[in-house]
Amino acid sequence: MTGAAPLLPEPRQPGRVLDARLHLLDRQVLDVDSVPVGTLDDLELGPSGPGAAAGSPRADDPPLDGTTTVVVTALLSGPVLGTRVFGGRPPASRWHRVLWRHVTDVGTAVRLANRGDDLDLTWTERWVRDHVVGRLPGGRHDPDAGP
């Protein structure tokens, strides 16, 4: 295949077409109440099948190549600032996974069917709320609930 050959026209696809970097990565993730819960830092890919989203990929999983149908199984959020600057990837234990089945819409933001409090993604926010803000005088007062 030479670079000078004309490109073949891409056939129309039967479903919505998304480019990962263009339409998904670095988008804000909103919960069912439109509350921001994080950023979509990466996508987990796995072989298609009934158990595709059952769990995280294991080290002994066969390598994925063109002979396998690959699907997005989960959205990943994690500490990527350092790895984007210096290279590499965060260890698998540092990723927070949100299964694709919880996604309800992909637009300028990615919307989920869950509440943010139900996601592992927001554990730091809950920890700070319970252990720091909640111990401040007036820290347990809900300003929306009135005086």
């Binding site: 696809q13 039967p14 479903g15 919505r16 077409v17 998304l18 480019d19 990962a20 998904l24 298609s48 989203a53 699907v71 997005v72 299964l99 694709w100 089945r101 919880h102 996604v103 309800t104 819409d105 992909v106 069917a113």
Partner: peptide, 11 residues
């Protein structure tokens, strides 16, 4: 990516 796989949730 093409959203033409089996329905998983809403999408």
């Amino acid at each position: 990516l093409v959203l033409d796989g089996t329905t998983d949730g809403i999408l």
